[in-house]
Design a protein around this nucleic acid. Structure first.
Lengths: 148, 148
DNA sequence: ATTGGAATTAGAATAATTCTAATATTAACC
DNA sequence: GGTTAATATTAGAATTATTCTAATTCCAAT
């Protein structure tokens, strides 16, 4: 498929998102598969798993392999377009909000949501082992339905 | 194997740890396999992965299946003997310190260590969705070697 | 002792993720 | 412009972590 043909703008909540430009701005070559993924993921702030993205693509009868979804999400993370959030051994979420913030993970529903109040992530600065620096501060507050 | 034969005390750092009693105290029937795992894991504060525990057992020529290691660790977590820590999609650590505390995860070495300064985990109380309660507050600070 | 039922174990199945061989794309040269 | 070489991308196959379930073990009651 020619690249020019895949170039498009996606309308969402009154703003236009140009996936091609967004990928190029992050040094990512905008292939058809990458645009397909970007156009469903990067259009707004959301938390999706690789599986959810893959299913969404399949539902629209578009053929992209699971491997490519994983490879592409990994690439987006390395290039700074996405944050990875590990909530348990079988669930990795991809968060399009790359600014530092924290999350609630509802163990009953499997939903990941943002925590509004920001955490002061400097609390452990004095404990940092020598010759190391902080890559990220990952906070997941596991919540569940109040038992009646 | 008879249970009485497997009952034993393990010496470590000048204190004795009775795995049989510890399991019984948590409502866990102390089988031979469970004692094998408990005696390598619960003797001191440490962070090990299922794989590390399994390998440690195999190195001593003892036959326990991987499935049993996983099932047992899951049981210990449910019974409150262990904490599970998810650092990435392929690494689950089991922490024998069940008191709330936070961790450094060194992405270069794969080592998990405790953070001494405790975090005030009440920062998001006001953001808690209705009819939910907190199960745990999981904090992993990812660190790496300072680039020269 | 013998049987019935529950608990435990581990082989087999599954699901998430990674690896690598194949394919597609770009660049360089004629 | 066509051909070849180098590089980047994709996806089938392999791998690995984990879970499931059938088989086994253990205990209690008769």
């Amino acid at each position: 498929m020619s690249l020019e043909k895949t170039k498009q703008m996606v309308k969402n909540t009154d703003i236009f998102f140009d996936a091609t430009e967004s990928l190029r701005a992050h040094g990512i070559y905008p292939t058809s598969q990458r645009l397909t993924i970007a156009n469903r993921l990067l259009i707004k702030h959301q938390h999706l798993t690789a599986e959810q993205i893959y299913e969404s693509i399949r539902n629209d009868q578009i053929k992209v392999s699971q491997a490519t979804v994983y490879n592409t999400l990994g690439l987006f993370v390395r290039k700074g377009l996405l944050n990875e959030i590990f909530v348990d051994s079988s669930k990795t979420f991809y968060d399009t909000n790359i600014k530092p913030h924290q999350h609630f993970y509802n163990v009953d529903t499997g939903q990941l949501t943002d925590i509004k109040t920001p955490l002061d992530t400097t609390f452990m600065r004095g404990d940092l082992p020598p010759d190391t620096l902080i890559e990220s501060v990952d906070v997941v507050v596991r919540i569940k339905k109040y038992p009646i």
